Amino acid sequence: MAEQKTPMQRALPGLLVAGSLGGVGLVMVSLLSLAPPVQDGSTPLAAAKDQPTKVEVSNAGAFVLPATVGPGGKNAPLTPARLDAPPPLAALPVVAPIPAPKTRAAKVKARPSRIKIPKIKVNAPVGAVTVNIKGKLGTPPLSKPNQVGWYRFSPVPGEAGPSIINGHVATRKGPAVFDRLRELAKGDHIYVYRSDGKVTRYTVSGIEQASKTSFPTNRVYGNTNDAQLRLITCGGVYNKTAHSYTDNIVVYATLSKKKG
């Protein structure tokens, strides 16, 4: 049987990510050329580079980035990988993606509705986010700090390609849904429930903290043949004046079980 391809599989997407107050702005340049650039109003982000780079770390000098995304873990510092590094390898055997619906009615039903991450006690509804007329990709409303946002033009969780879900790390009232995202590590499970009754289980394969000035666009949003998930929130130092964090936390996960 010929392999079904999603829109993301037909061409490589490029996205830039920028965070604002306790949140994360996902910037998606569809297929690296089709969609307009998007940013959330904080500092502009640099595009992915072809060659490895060095990162300047406050009070620590420069260091060469590792060739792979780290596994994370208790008391393990999160660092970025080289921009040319691929996504981390799956922690568990990969299962085949859920076929994309063929009819419009079925596509409307197949939407993520809830995400659960037992390790960090996340049990949150999933809303859809998209770009506005100014080219900015929305984040969940600050009035709903426990809600996450799925970019509705990324693959539906379970289908081939990288599904993109973002969430705030904090609001002015306190911690938000992804406050503990940085605690995840290779082997942890993430469950995404769909409105058509299907349930997907992803297993974390790696996690990194990347500067917004050198965001790993291709690694996060590049095409994949299997079903993958990216969870993104803010990290690093919070600038009270700019209402922005310096970094993004990115969790990579691969579909390891499905039902329904």
Rank of each mutant, 00 (worst) to 15 (best):
N223S: 12
G158A: 04
V177R: 05
A11C: 15
T200S: 14
T6S: 15
I207K: 13
K259F: 12
D188I: 03
P155R: 12
M28I: 03
P155H: 12
G72T: 04
E3C: 06
V69E: 02
P86V: 05
S163K: 02
I249N: 03
F215S: 05
S33K: 11
Q228C: 11
S143N: 12
K116R: 10
T6E: 08
L89W: 07
V95P: 01
R182F: 15
G161R: 08
A67D: 07
H168I: 03
L65Q: 02
L31N: 12
V108P: 00
D40Q: 12
S205T: 13
N75A: 10
T43S: 07
P36S: 08
V122H: 02
A242D: 10
I164W: 06
G260W: 06
K257W: 08
I120M: 01
G260L: 09
G19S: 12
K102D: 12
D188N: 15
T233I: 06
K136Q: 14
D179G: 04
A110V: 05
L181M: 11
T139P: 00
A91I: 01
I165K: 02
E3W: 03
R201H: 14
V131K: 13
P118E: 01
K136Y: 05
P37S: 08
A91L: 00
G149H: 09
P44Y: 06
A106L: 13
V24W: 13
T217L: 04
I190F: 07
A227M: 03
I133D: 14
L65W: 00
D247I: 04
V95K: 09
Y202H: 14
A96V: 09
K259N: 15
P13Y: 13
S256T: 14
P80Y: 09
V199D: 14
R82D: 11
R82H: 01
N248C: 06
Q147P: 06
R104T: 03
T171H: 10
G174M: 08
G174V: 10
V169L: 07
V38E: 03
A210W: 07
S205Q: 11
A91C: 04
G197K: 15
L31D: 12
K74E: 01
N218C: 10
E183A: 13
T224D: 12
V169Y: 09
K109C: 02
G235V: 00
P87Y: 09
Q4V: 07
